[in-house]
């Protein structure tokens, strides 16, 4: 499995390298630390949601509602922080509580009532998002608490450009990386992580070896909710404003990024490193287009082609490699032992 996945990751990595070479040839600014930090910062939001999506996909499910969850967590948290006051730590905590509850509701409905995950989460997405817009009346929040501003400006590593302007690795990127490392550890080194793969591989077999399939399902959707809520706060940090309608509609792109990274919609397969590369691939396409001065209108065309070619070629490979049984044919025809009516 490791070797095969490594192959998929190298393959995506290869595409990234090719793209990078093309973009750099046209605009050398692409291959600068400044640009790299910038990409990593602006995609932290997508990247964090992608971690949650990865978990859900590995378990064999799918979630469409996470963008709605992210928005609710973001909106309510900022509202609470403005009304009651608080701190950055409190903001993350409050968002997490909201995200986990909303996610766990999905997990519970899916497990308890055997409703297909895609249907459940489309329904909850409509429910969550509709209620949010009704109660927020669609109003934006511009005046975020001061600590949102201060926190967003923290740099873990600070460098200076030739002109003396500071740039560096944003706290938001660092948060994304920490979450990725923790998630990778959880998936690879804990019983819970292996249970998620087991459930995605074969839920009945998982039950037979003593995995609590119900707990795993509720966990992954709650985890998805948690990641979505953190992403929601990151979005507020990045934009310094909260718009109830800014995230919903992006969910399919995030799922696409995770699938590009090698996760299977059939479940049981996927890694954090692959997911990271998938997110980066789409990020680099977008960033590269800006740098190459390709009009932004072409972005969707490129993304569509990347999805079709990448997923299409791996599906085609699977189809071609689909072999029947292998029978080790006896080298020489043995003599007939019995005489028959031949």
């Amino acid at each position: 499995m490791k070797r095969l996945l490594a192959r998929h990751e190298t393959y995506i990595f290869g595409i990234i390298v090719v793209f990078s070479i093309i973009i750099t040839a046209i605009n050398p600014n692409f291959l600068t630390l400044e640009n790299a930090f910038d990409i990593l910062k602006s995609n932290a939001f997508t990247g964090i949601m992608a971690i949650g999506v990865l978990f859900v996909l590995i378990s064999g499910g799918i979630d469409i509602s996470f963008a709605a969850t992210a928005t609710i967590a973001e909106y309510l948290t900022v509202l609470i922080c403005l009304r009651v006051g608080g701190s950055m730590l409190f903001a993350f905590f409050s968002a997490l509580v909201i995200g986990i509850i909303l996610g766990a509701v999905n997990g519970y409905l899916i497990d308890r009532f055997a409703v297909p995950p895609i249907i459940t989460t489309i329904a909850t997405m409509n429910l969550y998002y509709g209620l949010l817009i009704v109660f927020s009346k669609g109003r934006w929040i511009y005046a975020l608490p001061q600590y949102f501003r201060t926190f967003a400006d923290i740099r873990v590593i600070t460098l200076y450009t030739a002109e003396g302007l500071p740039y560096g690795l944003s706290i938001v990127t660092a948060l994304w990386f920490v979450l990725m490392v923790l998630s990778a550890g959880l998936l690879f080194y804990t019983r819970l992580g292996r249970s998620i793969y087991a459930v995605g591989g074969d839920a009945i077999s998982a039950k037979r070896v003593g995995v609590s399939v119900k707990m795993v399902r509720i966990f992954v959707y709650a985890f998805m909710g948690a990641m979505a809520s953190v992403a929601g706060i990151v979005q507020a940090l990045l934009v310094q404003a909260v718009a109830p309608n800014s995230i919903v509609g992006k969910e399919l792109n995030v799922i696409a990024a995770v699938v590009l990274g090698g996760a299977s919609l059939a479940g049981g397969v996927g890694t954090v490193s692959g997911m990271f590369l998938g997110v980066m691939l789409l990020a680099i396409v977008q960033n590269g287009m800006t740098l190459m001065r390709v009009p932004a209108v072409w972005y969707d065309v490129f993304v569509g082609l990347v999805i079709l070619f990448s997923v299409g070629s791996s599906s085609w490979k699977v189809k071609k490699e689909k072999v029947g049984t292998f029978i080790d044919i006896e080298p020489l025809s043995p003599p007939m032992v019995q005489e028959g009516g031949r």
């Binding site: 499995m1 087991a198 591989g201 074969d202 070896v209």
Partner: peptide, 17 residues
């Protein structure tokens, strides 16, 4: 069995769980 997991993990999964 778990088709998505390795031989090693399939054999040891009972112990793990």
């Amino acid at each position: 069995l778990f088709p998505n997991l390795t031989v090693q993990e399939n054999i040891s999964i009972g112990d793990t769980m």
